[in-house]
Each structure stands twice: as structure tokens, then as C-alpha cells.
């Protein structure tokens, strides 16, 4: 079976429960309770959103989220925001190093958080597009989208570890 790609106004998305959606295609085909997931969560692409049923089988792929009609785009975006929690660090408030474990207190778009980084060499990753990805000792993820937008102190504290 060829893969079903959805784009533009060929489908309507309706919010079901939690992070699930119902999909109605223009030809009348319906899928209920699908879970949208990013195929490129790290790259941050707003394209190629796979839609999985409760068994984890793919039913369709949204080729480009931005091409959907605004209501549908909002429904899918809300679901994705519910599923993916990668707080964006806006300020590095404090960084201490004790016994080789880094303790960071940061301000994020989800609030203030303090966490430990066990291995600064593998848990702080600098990507070529300028973003910094961080993983804490509990496997939670964080992102610094643009280091140049951080204040001087945050930049300095980050600079010590990169």
C-alpha cells in the first residue's frame, strides 16, 4: 500500500481526547484517535508529521503542517505541543559543579527548573545549526534555540561548558 500523504485542505482534523485527533479525508475516509508524532523531532522540522493509531501503525503523514487549513493546523499543533515537551531555556540562572556533576538552574518557557547533568561531554550537545540540546540526569530534554539571544551571564556560563 502506498503511503498516504496529507497536505493542504485534503483533510480536516478534529481534536479527540488528550493528544489524539480524528481525521476526515476529502474522499470520506475517516480515521479516529490518531496520535500525531514528529518524524524529525530533533531537527525541529514542521513537516512530516506521522499519524499513528493505537497499535502504533501509521495511517498517514502530514507533509507540511503549515499547509493545513488554520483550524486543522491548530488542532495538530496543540497535540504536538502536548506530546513534545522540550523546554526552551531562556536564561541560565546558576551553574555549579560538584563532584563532576553539573547542577543548572534555568529559566524556560515552562518555568524555572533545577536539574543535574551527569556527563557534560555527552549530555550537552551543540548542533551545527547553532542550537544546544541538553539532557538531564532523569532523561528530560531541554533546548537553547539561539545562544546569541541569551544574556551575557548565561552565555558565559554556557560557554564554560561548550
Amino acid at each position: 500500500m502506498s503511503r498516504l500523504y496529507i497536505e493542504g485542505d485534503m483533510a480536516r482534523f478534529i481534536k479527540a481526547e488528550a493528544n489524539l485527533i480524528n481525521v476526515e479525508l476529502y474522499d470520506g475516509i475517516k480515521f479516529d484517535m490518531l496520535e500525531p508524532r514528529r518524524l524529525f523531532p530533533i531537527s525541529g522540522l514542521n513537516k512530516y508529521i506521522t499519524l499513528l493509531d493505537s497499535e502504533g501503525n501509521e495511517k498517514a503523514i502530514i507533509r507540511d503542517l503549515d499547509s493545513l487549513i488554520p483550524e486543522s493546523k491548530k488542532v495538530v499543533t496543540d497535540c504536538l505541543n502536548e506530546y513534545y515537551m522540550i523546554p526552551k531555556i531562556t536564561k541560565l540562572v546558576d551553574s555549579t559543579d560538584k563532584f563532576g556533576v553539573l547542577k543548572w538552574t534555568v529559566e524556560t518557557d515552562h518555568g524555572i527548573k533545577t536539574f543535574d547533568i551527569r556527563n557534560r561531554y555527552s549530555d550537552i550537545k551543540s548542533l551545527f545549526d547553532g542550537r544546544i540540546l541538553i539532557r538531564d540526569s532523569d532523561d528530560n530534554r531541554y533546548e537553547i534555540p539561539d545562544t546569541s539571544k541569551l544574556d551575557k551571564k548565561s552565555q558565559y556560563l554556557l560557554y564554560l561548558e561548550l
Binding site: Y83, Y84, P87, N140, R141
Partner: peptide, 28 residues
């Protein structure tokens, strides 16, 4: 527990058919 990306939820289905996302948390 519904594990998502960077966070998870405790989902509960009640006998009356109601589904509730009862508790949200990080992997901590």
C-alpha cells in the same frame, strides 16, 4: 502511564467510560 517526549501522563479510564488524564510529570 502514557510516555511522551520529555514528559508523561497517568491516564485513567473509569468504569463509567470517562477517560481522565489524571497526572502529568517529567521523567524524574
Amino acid at each position: 502511564v502514557k510516555r511522551m517526549y520529555g514528559n508523561a501522563r497517568l491516564d485513567v479510564e473509569l468504569k463509567n467510560g470517562r477517560k481522565v488524564s489524571a497526572f502529568r510529570f517529567t521523567y524524574s
